[in-house]
Design a protein around this nucleic acid. Structure first.
Lengths: 244, 244
DNA sequence: ATATATAAGTTAGCTAGCGCACATAAGATT
DNA sequence: AATCTTATGTGCGCTAGCTAACTTATATAT
């Protein structure tokens, strides 16, 4: 199958942080924003890399991942168009032990490290929104730490699906069970088993890397509290689309 | 046994962030800093509380904890005199879903929310150091997420011991197995079993809430990589005692 | 000295998730 | 149509950590 991957147009305002900037800040930033594609599997940065760009996704999903020496790993957070990737640029540490990988193809606007630091130092809305987003990210990561330890694979898969779907603004995901397993830090077979349960219940349909959610309300019944806790915190802290 | 808990004197400079401030910043802050005791078990804040003070520990350890509805919980980070408690004050979110509890008795200087926001807005060293510390905290939390999922109770206990000892600047801890179990999100019996192994190997001695490390080098052989990864990141990002 | 409370140690199933080896099926390629 | 590749499904034994009920030891209080 030949998949046409045309480049659609996205406004920077599709990213909710950029969209929430005051007009003057936004317009000063606009010429500095570079539009780029984020292909599936692309690593925006590896553990310890000096991070040179701050990315503002307008579509797609980026995963923040921690890898262990023995090959095991866990995704600690998901980022979509509500957020940004590369907090070490403005937090001051330049790099992070996590790596960042595109989990669902999409597009982003990126800002050079230099410009971001200059803007951040102004102490305006971009600083404020970046820090609020970082706090939301900390909550997501922390909740993931508890969830990894105490909830079942079934529950965690539901949470991952819902969290991903929220960022796709859609009921479809293009992702193999192999990739889900890698991100959740579990065996591929465990994903298969959990996915079969969901299919038998008619909650999702799944075939060779394309997953469709058929009954979202019932998925939300199955998911652990972690999904809602994080969502509430994002709603509390972050700007929403202006049409809301 | 009657334990005398006199209040010793600690300089604010026992906190490494305060100690790293330029003279003028430090002196401007000094009259605003209030010295307080942090008794064992004290909750600096509960989940969702509006946080009114930023705490700079000079001794003791504070745990950041996430609780689940079913009573399960996990500690997501430890804070000692290298850091601060209450990032939501300057990150802008006012509250966090985590709660903060004193895990080892100690003392701290606290700064009111109002003053901290004013200082942070100046964009000086306090802002810079606070954000660097927050980045380090994110790394600790993220590593905990992976560690919780992939490492054994034995490894995680070692990591917890070493991380705690680093913050006590000592080889002793006053903590029951019950409390350790709560913090690690595991059963008390699992802590007993792991502690017995360590005692049989002569690595620690443990009796009714007082634990002493006898052979730290060998503890460091047993611990998972997570300990060292986080330590390296703290060393890279944060200020060190000036005598180093 | 004795009683009481709290901390730590013991024992016996149970189960979720693991590692590993293999089977089937759906697109893609020729 | 036949073949190949990649994604998904299955079976089986193993073990860490769990629930649960209980015993022992140490410090403190009377």
């Amino acid at each position: 199958m030949l998949t046409l991957t045309k480049t659609p147009y996205y406004s920077p305002k599709q990213n909710l942080i950029l969209a929430a900037l005051p007009k003057t800040d936004y317009e000063r930033l606009l010429p500095e924003l570079e539009f780029i594609e984020m292909p599936l599997g692309w690593k925006l940065s590896e553990s310890g890399d000096h991070v040179n760009f701050l990315h503002f996704p307008v579509s797609g999903i980026v995963s923040l991942i921690y890898d262990l020496e023995n090959g095991a790993s866990s995704e600690v957070a998901l980022v979509g168009n509500e957020g940004l990737v590369g907090i070490s640029v403005f937090m001051g540490g330049d790099s992070m032990p996590s790596s960042t990988m595109v989990q669902s193809r999409g597009f982003a606007y990126r800002l050079s490290r230099k410009i971001m630091k200059r803007e951040f130092a102004l102490g305006g809305q971009l600083q404020h929104l970046s820090l609020l987003y970082t706090q939301a990210l900390i909550s997501q990561t922390s909740q993931t730490a508890v969830c990894n330890q105490h909830h079942t694979v079934d529950q965690r898969l539901c949470r991952w699906l819902l969290t991903s779907l929220d960022r796709m603004h859609d009921n479809k995901l293009t992702v193999t069970q192999e990739l889900i397993a890698y991100l959740l830090g579990i065996r591929r077979e465990s994903v298969t088993a959990a996915a079969i349960k969901l299919q038998k219940e008619g909650l999702v349909s799944y075939s060779r890397g394309s997953l469709k959610v058929l009954d979202r309300p019932r998925l939300e019944m199955l998911v652990c509290e972690c999904y809602e806790v994080v969502k509430q915190e994002y709603d509390r802290l972050l700007p929403h689309p202006s049409f809301r």
